[in-house]
């Protein structure tokens, strides 16, 4: 549990700009001068109005997209291409429907040439960890949305990632499932020791999960402020400080959403 405090951040976002230049359309400045670090094993939540570039940032950290300016450094190495050490989980589980759950979890392992018997062992272990030990040979469409998302976690965890990124992973789930999934995620996070970067629209989710919340401005996204959540887990929802955080985030977001609207109308 006592991790040495490493001077080297797990992810370091250094003055990152991103300008999308879609073919035949006007370029979009998604992110401008973004700067913050994620410590090893830290749980960071990204909060901001939609369209401010949160997904874009995750894609760039994953190495699926390049930066337009600045750099992203993970464990001391600049990100140039995707790596299984930086797992990414989407709003839809995106499991392959032609593979069983166990084979989905083992997909990355099989790409890396791990032998079938060992793959299966790891898949079983991972699925047990996410509470799907009896779903090995089911097909993805036989699982509920929450189970599929847990299977997607198992697929990412099977690669022993140092950073796990999640783009609104629970947005499509109902409220009850959602809060169960948050508990589940905290447990996964403690077990794996990975840093987590999670995007959400939900202020409650941010307070429930984060060590620190990075609040984005409206597009072009910049860091508006970074708020450490100084409450014990599970977060005491009756605590007055919980409500102070809540009010603060509501205000911060409302200001940015207003600004985004004003800009849209001006344009």
């Amino acid at each position: 549990m006592n991790r040495p405090i490493s001077a080297r951040p797990s992810v370091s976002i250094k003055a990152v700009d991103k300008i999308w230049t879609p073919e035949g359309r006007t370029p979009v400045e998604a992110l401008r001068g973004l700067e913050f670090d994620v410590a090893p094993g830290e749980f960071v939540v990204l909060l901001g109005p939609s369209g401010c570039g949160k997904s874009t940032l995750l894609y760039m950290i994953a190495g699926l997209e390049g930066v337009s300016g600045g750099s992203i450094v993970c464990d001391g190495l600049p990100v140039t291409e995707p790596s299984a050490e930086r797992g990414l989980i989407f709003q839809e589980a995106s499991l392959f429907p032609w593979l069983t759950i166990a084979d989905n979890v083992a997909f990355g392992l099989s790409i890396q040439g791990v032998l079938p018997v060992r793959r299966r062992e790891i898949a079983i272990e991972m699925l047990k960890r996410v509470g799907l030990g009896d779903m090995l040979d089911k097909k993805p469409d036989e699982l509920s949305g929450g189970m599929r998302q847990r299977a997607a976690c198992a697929r990412a965890l099977a690669m022993k990632p140092k950073v796990l990124m999640m783009d609104e992973p629970f947005a499509a789930l109902d409220v009850q499932t959602r809060s169960r999934m948050q508990d589940f995620l905290l447990q996964i996070w403690r077990d794996s020791g990975a840093s987590i970067l999670l995007v959400t629209h939900s202020i409650d989710e941010a307070i429930a999960l984060a060590d620190r919340v990075v609040v984005f401005t409206a597009r072009p996204g910049r860091v508006k402020t970074i708020v450490p959540i100084d409450l014990p887990r599970p977060r005491p929802t009756r605590d007055p400080r919980y409500h102070e955080y809540r009010d603060m985030f509501t205000e911060l977001l409302a200001a940015e959403v207003d600004r985004a609207f004003a800009e849209q109308e001006a344009a």
């Binding site: 699926l64 790409i111 890396q112």
Partner: peptide
């Protein structure tokens, strides 16, 4: 083919050939 399928393949380190045979073709 859903972009996320291709993203998963890339993150897992699949070559283009592996991506074609194991993701695109079944899709």
């Amino acid at each position: 083919v859903p972009k996320n399928y291709l993203h998963v393949a890339r993150i897992m380190g699949a070559t283009e050939r592996q991506t074609f045979w194991r993701v695109i073709l079944p899709a």
